[in-house]
């Protein structure tokens, strides 16, 4: 009985090449993360090129830079495994996670202080004084 169980277990486990399965899982996970990050980065670049206004361009740049960079670096960390390179990539991911929103905020703050006005469309938020005096009277 025990022998039969052991035979069945070994028979079931033998044809599975676990190292290859782990390699493929690593490759597919890191590949999916890198492709997602590349999609975000290209979307951010298109947004910077095509958006009509400086502040909307800042929105496109600041969001996608952080997210795409983190995805790509996470994919590279998974690909390189437990090595020194992985630690350096983690360091880059940490620096970019701190400095990228800070730089975007610095640019937006400098533009706001220099008096650059956002481009406003036909639908604006009404002033607080005009709300009471509106259509009701």
């Amino acid at each position: 009985m025990a022998e039969a169980k052991h035979d069945a277990a070994s028979h079931a486990a033998a044809p599975l090449p676990w190292t290859e399965i782990f390699e493929w899982a690593q490759a597919l996970l890191s590949g999916g993360l890198i492709l997602t990050g590349a999609f975000f980065v290209i979307a951010g670049a298109i947004g910077i090129l095509r958006m009509p206004d400086f502040y909307t361009r800042i929105h496109a740049a600041g969001m996608t830079d952080t997210m795409g960079a983190e995805f790509i670096l996470l994919g590279l960390i998974i690909q390189s495994g437990f090595t020194q390179t992985s630690l350096k990539l983690l360091l880059i991911a940490f620096f970019l996670f701190i400095t990228s929103p800070t730089a975007t905020h610095a640019i937006a703050h400098a533009a706001h202080l220099s008096g650059l006005k956002p481009k406003l469309g036909p639908y604006q938020a009404p002033d607080l004084d005009d709300i009471g005096k509106g259509d009701g009277s």
Partner: peptide, 20 residues
């Protein structure tokens, strides 16, 4: 400021390209 933003984002993408 558009140019500063584009150059900053360019640098981030250069870092990612260098890693890859």
């Amino acid at each position: 400021y558009d140019r500063a933003l584009a150059v900053n984002s360019f640098g981030t993408k250069a870092v990612l390209f260098l890693c890859l």
